[in-house]
Design a binder for these strands. Structure first.
Lengths: 204, 204, 204, 204
DNA sequence: AATGAATGAGCGTTCATTCAT
DNA sequence: AATGAATGAACGCTCATTCAT
């Protein structure tokens, strides 16, 4: 399993520093990676620019840490969700529902993160870890269903999971750009039925 | 059908201007929306910075026009593909194959475009038009299949199309960030089988 | 007497060129010396920028020639006025009236001219010639009055003329800046009475 | 009485900022309004360009504040002069002498200020306030002389004051352009005698 | 002669960063 | 630790000028 935690522990700031990170994430979602300046975070958080630099070092370091912070929170939440449900199919349903109900702010943050990662090797590593962690509980759910005999999949587990994750992440731009309402019952029905189809051989 | 053409025709530049646009798109995919400076395009195209400004007006106008140019090309290509195939199912298969084989450069360009659109109202309008045009031939294919009796869909046409488009666009980040090979036979099988399932009622 | 004519005859343009000069003067009064760009004159006159450069050479040369043109016109008009009136006092009155009724556009043009001259040696020479020519008919009027016995001045002719010219030019900023109406009967009365006082010894 | 003070107090800079303002005024007089660039002031004052922008905001704000600074100083000096002399006539004489002995640098600064004001509404407001304040002690002196019976004016107070102010300001261009020595005893005699004439009815 | 196209020089401005307190 | 002040680097943009037609 990859590491999502910061590589070195920073002392500066302490509690105040953690509070600032949430502001950084909010500004990031609003103004974008390249558009997030020190002064924006300073105004949003009430902390002086030079203090921010004392906390994080450079602008890029601040943004990278904000991404680590925000994505870690999101992944941990998904993991906890998976741990709460025992039945494999119900677990998958819960995770799909969770994914489909991702709020716009989170999508925006992820969009900025991934777009920034496309231009930055260090962020790209982090994105790879995030992708793996995000798919992990899905793969786990499918495998547990297979082992228990509940699923008799028609395809590779990896391909099935990739498809359902694509069904979730594919909502990002429609939702962020306002083309699609965040929650659509019909869409959920299609995704879940297709997933059930993929997991269940016809000869059953 | 929405309008993807530039609002006003610019004369400056002529043929040379069109050549430059391709360079702008390339730089855009490489450096990102915010990271694309006049000097980058100048170096890539061999045209002086001030000449670029003579062509496009401002940096933003240049980037917006590049996006219009590139996305129009992509949409027209998809439309032509749809027009070439007569059988509805074969048309859908062809379009899915086309979508799944989208090259990294195009995905990067679209990623930059959509991310920029999230912060710019004018680009957002264009993105909405693009989204509509991209889905149009899919919806058309499904409808034609229903009318001919080939499809007896289990769900709303819109939801089915949204799901298959999500299966395509959901590849963007895995492909751009290098997590996934652009072409994966298993993934294609899942997507097409799920689409066929959604379009075919069991009682047939 | 100094020379106000252009130093070298330019061929380019001919009649069209002369027409353009009036546009240059108008733009000059409106936008100021430093603010007058080729494109402004081009838009005002309907002549292409590069054509203007063909006419005048550089931007500065164009402006300098416009100043020469406009000031020559003003001085010639004052000279003609002086030649029309025979009686020395009536001549002075006519010239004062003429000066006090200078229109805002002319004042603006002169303001730009003199301000530019403060930063340019060549224009300063021209301004010196203009100053001399402007005072010449005043000095001539006073001298003719003295010779005829009509005036018995209390002060040097030069000082008297300087004072009355100051009374005229002193209106420039109030008029241009809108603090004072261009024509004020009371003010005229003061200027003329003070002039008459200066020209007439009490023992007469 | 109009307000000549800056509209909002800026903190940045403090003492250093005030020192820079004098340099701005000097450069302004030397190079003109349009010709005064940040780099000129930076070189004259030894302060970095970006620091100047930190102090003043924009180039225009810097120049406007320099004008306010310089003109306020000039007006305050004239007011103090007026307050020192008790006898109305002696006060007027002192003010005329002060006006006629205005140094070239001040005239140049005022010339630039007024010329700039002709193209800028905000500066024009300030110029109106300045004009009013400049004439105020003159009007006050005349009125006090009338009340005490020392003056029995032949004309409106406003017209008389306008004429004497014109006699002062009318020196601007001759002095700035070097046509006239700044101090000329004969000219002073004319101005003062004409003023005395205007203020004293013949029947006395 | 007249013009559009192309371009380089120069300027205002933004912003991350360094430094002193 | 926290901050304001100061600054250099970099970029978009304007505009006069040169060149080819």
């Amino acid at each position: 399993m990859s590491d999502l935690s910061p590589r070195r522990t920073r002392r500066a700031g302490g509690a105040r520093r953690a509070l600032v990170l949430d502001h950084v994430v909010a500004v990031l979602a609003d103004r974008g990676y390249a558009g997030t300046r020190f002064i924006d975070v300073a105004e949003a958080s009430g902390v002086a620019v030079s203090t921010l630099q004392g906390y994080f070092g450079s602008r890029e370091d601040m943004l990278i840490e904000a991404f680590r912070h925000a994505t870690s929170v999101a992944v941990v939440a998904m993991d906890e969700l998976a741990a709460q449900v025992d039945d494999p199919w119900q677990q998958l349903v819960a995770m799909v529902d969770r994914g489909l109900s991702t709020d716009v702010a989170t999508w925006r943050m992820l969009m900025e993160f991934w777009t920034a990662a496309a231009h930055d090797a260090e962020l790209r590593e982090h994105a790879a870890a995030l992708a793996e962690q995000y798919r992990e509980p899905f793969i786990d759910g499918v495998r547990r269903g297979i082992e228990s005999g509940a699923f008799t999949p028609r395809f590779d587990t990896a391909a099935i999971v990739e498809a359902v994750v694509a069904n979730i992440v594919g909502l990002l731009y429609p939702v962020v750009l306002g083309h699609l309402a965040p929650q659509d019952t019909d869409y959920r029905d299609v995704v879940l039925a297709q997933l059930a189809f993929a997991l269940t051989s016809q000869e059953r």
